[in-house]
Write a protein that binds this DNA or RNA. Structure first.
Lengths: 163, 163
DNA sequence: ATAGGTGCAAAAAATTTGCTTGGAT
DNA sequence: ATCCAAGCAAATTTTTTGCACCTAT
């Protein structure tokens, strides 16, 4: 059968393009997940990705979502994160070095960049005899008391995103 | 019954003392876990803690280990860590601020301290309108090629400890 | 005495996998 | 046509929990 506009319709997502570059077989499901990911500004977990995907096309199973994020992580397209909610969450790998601040009261995650940490991490790795491969920094913080934020639990609320 | 030398025998572990300070009921199992933890220089997961505990006294179940580390975390005696191996790992909370470097080839974890990060994290939190509650830094590195370390997988080997 | 801890096994929760069918190349 | 992907459900893996019994206080 012919595939109408097989590879250059208006709607090729950024992540789909990365998949193609890496020679991945593009099924409808992968295309869908790629689109959902490309449109996501936050750090969804698999359950959430599945929800967003199903909303667009129900012909996808959660097993496929698991298999796909795993594949994309292996291909360096996604990075797996752990913000403490018990579920792995995913972040696009090509957004440049950035870090996360988690609001311990609300669980919201805020991204930030700071070039100084990179240099510091590099230096420390070298001091210990390693070359820097990657590094992660998570800051847990509490919004300055503008109202009255009661002292919350030590363990942050299940992380959610700022969106 | 009398407890011979109830609270000042040679063998009260550091963590047991912290438990007592916080008014926890000290059972044989808790004492044992406290001792195992106090003697651990690394970052064991629950399975490993269980193994070490059973080796000293088999009258303990893994459910109790889970319940106990959870309790100790709530009491601020332990901190839960995630180094990517799929299992939670535990670190004594009172060792001062320190960070971890994970060897991506071997999975070994090395601790280090660096006061500059604390200041930086503080400053960043403030800039974003938060007060600093906690922060974590993990560096993933590869030992400098003294032999020939082939480029390994992106995901580190299941973290093990340096011990 | 009694509140709370423990063991055991079952339940949950998150993720992976075997197998058959379906679809991309 | 071939090989890999997807669906589904069962299996794994990690952690939690219900309940009857036991123990530190």
């Amino acid at each position: 059968m012919d595939t109408p506009a097989s590879a250059d319709r208006e709607g090729i997502s950024r992540i789909e393009r990365m998949c193609i570059e890496r020679g991945l077989k593009m099924t409808g499901q992968r295309r869908l997940i790629a689109r959902v990911l490309s449109e996501s500004e936050d750090h969804p977990d698999v359950e959430e990705l599945y929800r967003r995907a199903v909303a667009q096309d129900s012909r996808i199973s959660i097993a496929t979502v698991y298999r796909t994020v795993r594949l994309l992580e292996e291909k360096g397209i996604l990075e797996r994160r752990d913000f403490g909610g018990g579920r792995a969450r995913y972040d696009q790998a090509d957004r440049g070095q950035h870090y996360h601040l988690i609001d311990v009261d609300t669980g919201k995650v805020i991204e930030f960049a700071d070039p100084r940490h990179q240099a510091l991490a590099q230096e420390i790795a070298a001091r210990l005899g390693f070359e820097l491969v990657d590094h992660r920094l998570e800051i847990f913080g509490r919004r300055f008391p503008e109202g009255k934020a009661p002292p919350g639990p030590r363990r942050p609320a299940k992380p959610q995103d700022e969106t």
